[in-house]
């Protein structure tokens, strides 16, 4: 695989999961994709390994036997900027949101497909490599020129309200990654609006009607139910 590599070495990925089967699967899949995998079977070992190995990315299971996953993220974030992708089951949506708000970059719901995982890893690694987004963003029929504040759908310019544009701009700069409701609300409206999710819903709905071909089956501005929104990035 043609991976974008920070520096010269192949990217190191720390896998923290208490299930041996998952560690084995991830090791096999990731190593065959050109990553170096360091497994750890619980939170404390994971923290120690993160300090020793200095991984480029961390895959963290939230249901660890010894430490709370959110706690692990907080401790990592005290010193490490490495992207963290959280793995979790559907029934623990609140944990996912807490993990994202604590500093995780993305999440995946178990069971997940390997292509999906690799895509997420690539997106997160890219963030590390070049902080500045590309000036013109493409996803399907959508084209956003951040420098010229121009939004085109299938080549046609679309008029957005300032708020809608702000939402879209924020999502473009985090393209491919999930943004929680909380993150969106606090960045667009400020922390005073954290408890008013309906303004976000209304604006997202309006935005969809402008940029999606069928707003009831969105293909670009995706809903992560119970968590937030994600802008699909072209691979």
């Amino acid at each position: 695989m043609d991976e974008t590599k920070p520096g010269d070495h192949p990217p190191r990925i720390l896998v923290v999961d208490d299930e041996a089967a998952i560690r084995r699967l991830l090791a096999t899949v990731l190593e065959s994709s050109g990553f170096v995998v360091h497994p750890a079977e619980n939170g404390s070992l994971g923290l120690a390994a993160a300090a020793a190995v200095r991984p480029d990315l961390i895959l963290l299971d939230l249901g660890l036997p010894d430490l709370d996953g959110v706690e692990v993220i907080k401790r990592l974030r005290e010193w490490s900027p490495a992207p963290i992708i959280v793995l979790s089951v559907r029934e623990r949506e609140d944990d996912k949101v807490a993990a994202l708000d604590a500093g995780a970059d993305d999440y995946l719901t178990k069971p997940f497909g390997v292509p999906e995982l690799l895509a997420r890893i690539r997106v997160s690694l890219r963030r590390v490599v070049d902080q500045a987004p590309e000036p013109v963003f493409h996803s399907g029929e959508l084209e956003v020129d951040l420098a010229r504040r121009l939004v085109l759908v299938a080549g046609q310019e679309v008029q957005l309200t300032p708020t809608e544009y702000e939402i879209l701009r924020l999502m473009v700069t985090h393209a491919g990654r999930v943004l929680t409701h909380r993150q969106l609300l606090s960045r667009i409206w400020g922390s005073s609006h954290l408890e008013q999710p309906h303004v976000l819903r209304v604006n997202i709905s309006n935005l969809r009607h402008k940029i999606e071909r069928d707003p009831s089956r969105p293909t670009v501005l995706l809903t992560e139910s119970g968590v937030g929104y994600r802008l699909r990035a072209d691979p």
């Binding site: 819903r201 709905s205 969809r208 707003p215 009831s216 089956r217 995706l222 809903t223």
Partner: peptide, 27 residues
């Protein structure tokens, strides 16, 4: 939470996406 019905339907359809194939869904 305040919920947009269109979004709700969209989420349900996206879950079923792999199995929808060419089926016509009239919303």
């Amino acid at each position: 939470t305040p919920c947009d019905v269109e979004e709700l339907i969209g989420c349900a359809l996206s879950v079923l996406d792999p199995r929808l194939g060419k089926r016509e869904i009239a919303v």
